[in-house]
């Protein structure tokens, strides 16, 4: 057998978990083997991993953090309880052994975007893969221009990473807008779809790139609104999701036309998506 078996997960330990929103928790995993930890210590915003509950199954998730030199390579993922694997993940006790495969897929080309203004648009759990983008920009704050964060959810209880908003807001040259789809009791902030607030905030397309993640329908309409604001399709980045079983272009599951979400993505320019044979909707 050749040296690396891409279907075999690294074993790790669940070292922390906290609630993020209704049905959504953040899970922190540390790999057990020091050598594997070393190999795994570099991943980039936008990449994904497979999280296994051994005996139940595995599912793909985007990284919700960037490697932190201070805290060591702790992997964070935000997981919404929707299927049998995610239900099992939510039921894991601290200290449980889990499997991790990755890092997989391409990533947001943040190096290339240096010097630009960045607009980050996250909807619901779609905020999770954007958190490393924000972390990266804040860590390399001087390399980037103005940062606009627009965060949305259906209702206040579905907003993720609320305890970090103050930190993000107070970062230099950064603005943040939070909105929910429908009015809710006790909510005094913005109400309206992410597209509405995006139009109101109206970030300038001048030397800017917008990075979007959310449900397919949101990605579609945010793209339209950005277009209205003058963003070209080469200034819009998004990350897509798909059911997959390998993450390395073998299982055939995640294709959209000839593009494989796992191998050619999950990060795509809107200009690429527009040329896809098959719609992601």
């Amino acid at each position: 057998m050749s040296e690396v078996n891409p279907m075999r997960p690294y074993l790790g330990t669940l070292v922390g978990t906290k609630p993020l929103a209704t049905g959504i928790r953040l899970f922190q995993v540390e790999l057990n083997d020091p050598e594997e930890r070393e190999k795994f210590s570099v991943w980039r915003p936008g990449q994904f991993l497979f999280f296994s509950v051994l005996g139940v199954g595995e599912a793909p998730f985007g990284f919700a953090n960037i490697p932190d030199p201070q805290r060591g390579p702790v992997i964070e993922v935000a997981i919404n309880k929707v299927g049998h694997v995610t239900r099992a993940i939510h039921a894991l006790p601290l200290g449980a052994t889990v499997g991790i495969r990755g890092p997989l897929g391409n990533y947001f080309p943040l190096e290339e975007l240096k010097g630009q203004n960045i607009v980050v648009l996250g909807g619901g759990i779609g905020g999770a893969p954007l958190r490393p983008v924000i972390q990266y920009i804040l860590r390399h704050r001087d390399d980037y221009g103005h940062l606009t964060i627009i965060w949305a959810a259906r209702s206040p209880d579905l907003l993720v990473f609320t305890d970090e908003y103050d930190e993000w807001r107070s970062a230099p040259d950064t603005e943040m807008h939070v909105t929910i789809d429908r009015p809710a009791e006790g909510w005094t902030g913005n109400v309206g779809l992410i597209t509405e607030i995006l139009e109101k905030v109206a970030p300038s397309p001048e030397n800017a790139t917008a990075i979007t993640c959310g449900p397919p329908i949101m990605i579609y309409f945010v793209g339209k609104t950005l277009g209205k604001l003058g963003f070209s399709e080469d200034q819009m980045l998004t990350t897509l999701e798909a059911r997959m079983h390998c993450g390395i272009g073998k299982c055939g599951r995640c294709n959209l036309g000839e593009k494989l979400v796992c191998k050619d993505g999950p990060v795509f320019w809107q200009s690429e998506i527009s040329t896809f044979l098959e719609s992601f909707l």
Partner: peptide, 11 residues
């Protein structure tokens, strides 16, 4: 075959 978490099915 193509159903995603959350139930969306592009095919």
């Amino acid at each position: 075959y193509r159903v995603q978490a959350g139930g969306a099915n592009p095919r």
